[in-house]
Design a protein around this nucleic acid. Structure first.
Lengths: 119, 119
DNA sequence: AAATAAGTACGAGAATTTTCGTACTCGAAA
DNA sequence: TTTCGAGTACGAAAATTCTCGTACTTATTT
């Protein structure tokens, strides 16, 4: 149970479900800064980290009252910058902050986001 | 010589020459991120830090080939975010990165800017 | 006092980003 | 298989940012 069935040889099933995201070495500081320059997106990242764990959460779980297409946009900006990771769970798209990658690639960044006084 | 003459009691003459900038506690992470999301502005900050010291440098010293009004815009964005400090020296406006303030307020940020591979 | 040099103020066009409605896809449930 | 739920794709309007020309200000130099 809980084993994803994929159509190709695949030692790591979850890879199939993972949406495209940059490798840590390909993350660009200016792109990361741009992604975090929007207060709404900072809130999203803060919410995703608010439970202390690194579980995947649906974008409705984040509880931001905006149209679905607006949320899709912001989550995509965050993912393409390398800040969050997204996976498909059935009909849902769940996300989590790439805490380990970010802490290693940009020390201090997450602390800066967590300390931001916004929502 | 080199003593600024001001029109009011002024124990610290340089304060007169200093352009308005936020106190460290008033710096906002989202505003700082926005200021650093532009590659041109990251280059400016890198250039200002490139000599290892914290001397004030004119915006032409930075050596970026753009119209003066464009440079004025970018330097203002950086100053209002709290990233640089600007002072008047005669007809010049010289700037320097607020390294101490930034290192204390946002640990890791300057390292992130310095490591950015842009110009 | 006139010329020069450095930079600002203002305004406008170009480019980018944000927002959101509508239609669509895809998987799960009835 | 029909419906429902979560989210995406697309497109367009609104807002913001970037760029830069022109005119202006200010301080130094001649």
């Amino acid at each position: 149970m809980l084993v994803a069935m994929t159509t190709q040889i695949d030692q790591v099933p979850s890879l199939e479900e993972r949406l495209e995201q940059p490798e840590p070495r390909d993350m660009r500081a200016d792109v990361v800064f741009a992604a975090l320059s929007d207060p709404l997106r900072i809130s999203i990242v803060q919410r995703l980290m608010s439970e202390g764990d690194d579980a995947f959460r649906s974008c409705t779980w984040v509880g931001i009252d905006r149209p679905k297409s607006t949320l899709t946009h912001h989550f995509r900006v965050l993912r393409e910058a390398g800040i969050i990771e997204q996976r498909r769970y059935g009909t849902e798209r769940r996300s989590r902050v790439r805490m380990d990658d970010l802490a290693a690639r940009f020390p201090g960044l997450l602390e800066m986001v967590l300390a931001a006084p916004l929502g």
